[in-house]
Write a protein that binds this DNA or RNA. Structure first.
Lengths: 275, 275
DNA sequence: GTGCCTGGCGTTCGGGTGCCAGCATGTTAG
DNA sequence: CTAACATGCTGGCACCCGAACGCCAGGCAC
């Protein structure tokens, strides 16, 4: 057991558990506690973990991270799950996908990562650092190339701006999954962030087929900036929570409109934390 | 048993095991340990494996966490720390910095993040997702804009390729801090990754001043691809571990050459004012 | 409060292992 | 023959690991 190997094991443990104990690791790896302490010390010095009394703990990561992000994920989680599942049906082996930033597309990415093995080679273009991270960790296990657009970061963890736009101008994708903040019959797809609207417009220009993922709370919402008119949309995937009139209105405006059923209570896997 | 054959065997072993020992391989192949060490050294220079104390470890794999990146950080840690500290001296408020991928620049980013408050407004351009993550988490606390170049990911967590290059063509930076894999008097700055060399070359074109950060183990190392000749370098910052002849050689080739003292014993990173 | 115990930490020292520079040898090519 | 390259060997050095000891803090009894 070599030193870097041990340290890798410690970090791996820390991805699962919030903290680890020196004694536990020492026993598990069959080395002295002193050695583990030195390993932790080294990890700490490198800014990869934090040394605490009795063991080590990870730095920020999933817990402290995402102030607005995780909170938002929970909202309408079941709907987003169902939508993501439906969207996944559109993916075929060999395709080049685009995924914009946002929590809905992130859900899709999670599902995509889980299903990668059955999908052969895929290329994914994204301006979301979180999606890039997620898919990158699947690498080795599956055949998936990830391309990041670059740009500046918005509070919602997406990369935007001239750099992102320029990158998208040189890329062509088969299908683009886009999460939006609002979907209005007159004002089209909207988002509160000007730069994001511009970037998302570039996504639309670069794709053959635009799929908008929007839970039912997004209908009739107008945010600051319009990304594109409804006529640019090829497919809308939503849940069944919208009023029938609303559903019909939007269904009549786009070539394909899918409203997936969301199990009412859904005592799903791990949800249920907040009541 | 020829050299390429041995090295192939080592790589094969690494696909199965997280790490291998010099002694084991030497025994298995019935050659001297010295030969295996040289093989591993070569594999490392070509970016196919990573040399560690006692053997070799693979770069990326299913291990879920950053592979060669974190494991390697330990090596030359004190030197990298001292180098980072020195590099930080070159940063002035209002500057636009570029940081390439690599462990040395990551160390710089860690220091930079800690010192952000005193530096006023900064703009940082990077092709390293880890650096982007790190600096982004400082946001709010300090005035620092982070721009990611975009591109595809290499095993060493850097973004490279046409997208990165195109982004860099549109950006201009005051100073670029670059970590390299090798620094050779004849072959200049080198790296095992072809795409990375191309991207780093783009970094050089886009900056006013190029600062190469290289601990003393990097001198006289030739990796696969040349990024740029030594004449492109404005400043080299290294530690004091190189032979005097080496130091003089490189010092005579670049306008500014700084060898920072690395306290010999000081296993402690924290200051230690008591004497 | 004092005294004792316990658990974790850090230092220090010693043994062992691995690393490297330098030289010697063998092989191949010109 | 010389040159270049690959391999093996050796002695000195550096590093890693483990164990022992002392330090410090908290808990508990008195």
């Amino acid at each position: 057991m070599l030193a870097p190997e041990r340290q890798a094991r410690i970090l791996k443990q820390l991805q699962v558990h919030e903290a680890v104990r020196v004694a536990d690791i020492a026993a598990a790896l069959n080395v002295s506690e002193m050695t583990i302490r030195r390993d932790i010390e080294s990890l700490d010095a490198n800014g990869l973990a934090r040394k605490i009394h009795g063991g080590a703990t990870r730095l920020a990561r999933l817990s402290a991270l995402e102030p607005g992000f995780l909170l938002n994920v929970d909202k309408e989680l079941d709907a987003k799950l169902a939508i993501a599942r439906e969207a996944l049906e559109l993916v075929r082996p060999g395709m080049t996908l685009a995924l914009t930033g946002g929590t809905t597309t992130y859900q899709l990415a999670v599902h995509l990562a889980a299903a990668l093995e059955g999908l052969g080679h895929l290329t994914v273009v994204t301006n979301s650092l979180k999606v890039a991270e997620l898919l990158y960790h699947q690498q080795g296990r599956a055949d998936c190339k990830v391309i990041v657009t670059g740009g500046e970061r918005t509070p919602s963890e997406a990369l935007v701006g001239p750099v992102a736009r320029a990158a998208l101008h040189t890329l062509n994708t088969d299908i683009c999954f886009m999460g939006v903040h609002g979907l209005d019959a007159d004002r089209g797809l909207t988002t509160p962030n000007l730069l994001e609207s511009e970037t998302n417009a570039a996504f639309i220009e670069s794709t053959r087929r635009l799929v908008v993922l929007a839970d039912s709370s997004k209908f009739h919402v107008r945010s600051l900036a319009t990304i594109a008119p409804l006529s640019a949309v090829d497919t809308i995937i939503t849940d069944d929570g919208a009023a029938p009139a609303t559903r019909e209105l939007f269904a009549s405006r786009v070539p394909t409109f899918t409203a997936v059923a969301v199990p009412a209570d859904t005592t799903k896997n791990q949800t249920r934390k907040s009541s």
